[in-house]
């Protein structure tokens, strides 16, 4: 168990350093003159060569790859993300502000997804092939196929433009989070419904269940002791995949709804060639991803002891 955890942490370290190195190499080799883009973002005007050269020196873009890489990586090890190339402010506080918009939205969409998918999947799995089941399957298939940006626009069109019930743009009040959370939540609902439904169906097909039922154990007890734990395994697995979907969706949804979260932060940083900002978001995302997968692996080992034996 301890060895397995240690191995996973080691792997996470390899993955994280790989991501960091790849990002830096990509940033460094990206075409175009980053100093010019930064200067544009900073002064918002056409500029002379002198100003651009000055920006280049300030942003640390006038040295070669390896010194630049180490001067970025070494502070990073103590979680120092440096200063923005555009504003000159430290990256970390701005990043925290962005996260304070993103994390509640992510949690809200997960909550929406679970709240809808769990009852839907249980109802659907009760009688496979029934009308409820077919509707659930249809919702699931459709939800996976609808791109978040389109769904977001449709929701804005309906609730903000036509009905004028909810605000669309910005993030001033909690009501501003409703439409983004619904947009992301439906995507989450789709894949959760799929997985939970087939998880329950598979768990109900376990070969020893008829024997237990004949012994007089109630359906309720069977559901609690044998179906639910078994069905939980694929749900936990899919949670890790869902995180990727969430993070991808967040970028788009934040841009559509004009929320100043991590996604907007990233897109603006890319456009302005604000390397410290891009690097910070990338490393943070990888960190979140690896951590969540570490947690999922831990939960997995608890609910499914066989896994530990299968792969170390």
């Amino acid at each position: 168990m301890i060895m397995g955890l240690l191995g996973f942490v080691l792997r996470a370290a390899v993955v994280l350093s790989g991501t960091a190195a790849l990002t830096f190499a990509l940033l460094w080799n990206a075409p175009g003159d980053p100093a010019q883009a930064i200067a544009m973002a900073r002064f918002d005007a056409l500029l002379t060569e002198d100003v651009i050269d000055q920006v280049r020196a300030e942003a640390g873009l006038d040295i070669s790859f390896w010194p630049a890489f180490t001067s970025w990586l070494v502070p990073l090890l103590s979680l120092d993300f440096g200063n923005s190339a555009v504003t000159g402010r430290p990256v970390w506080p701005d990043l925290v502000t962005a996260m304070s918009y993103t994390f509640p939205l992510a949690l809200a969409s997960l909550a929406v997804g679970l709240a809808v998918s769990l009852p839907l999947a249980v109802l659907a799995a009760k009688r496979p092939g029934s009308l409820v089941d077919r509707c659930a399957v249809a919702v699931a298939s459709l939800g996976v196929a609808i791109p978040a940006y389109w769904l977001g626009l449709l929701l804005i069109l309906l609730f903000a433009v036509k009905l004028a019930w909810l605000p669309a743009m910005g993030a001033r009040t909690a009501a501003h989070a409703i439409l983004p959370a619904l947009t992301l939540g439906l995507g989450v609902t789709a894949s959760f419904t799929r997985i939970i439904r087939s998880g329950i169906l598979e768990a109900r097909g376990q070969p020893f269940l008829p024997a237990i039922r004949r012994r007089g154990v109630s359906d309720r007890a069977i559901g609690r002791d044998h179906v639910a734990p078994h069905a939980a395994i694929p749900v936990v697995t899919v949670f890790g995949l869902e995180l990727a979907f969430l993070l991808e969706g967040l970028v788009l949804v934040e841009v559509i709804f004009g929320r100043p979260g991590l996604g907007t932060f990233l897109v603006q940083a890319i456009l302005a060639r604000d390397f410290p900002h891009v690097q910070a978001v990338v490393v943070l995302t990888a960190l979140i991803f690896v951590t969540v997968n570490l947690l999922i692996d831990g939960i997995y080992r608890v609910i499914e002891p066989r896994i530990g034996e299968r792969d170390a």
């Binding site: 790989g18 995180l243 993070l247 890319i270 995302t285």
Partner: peptide, 13 residues
């Protein structure tokens, strides 16, 4: 390493 990152976010970057 490549999987340790949401594919679309990486593509955007």
């Amino acid at each position: 390493t490549f999987l340790a990152f949401p594919e679309l976010v990486a593509a955007v970057v």
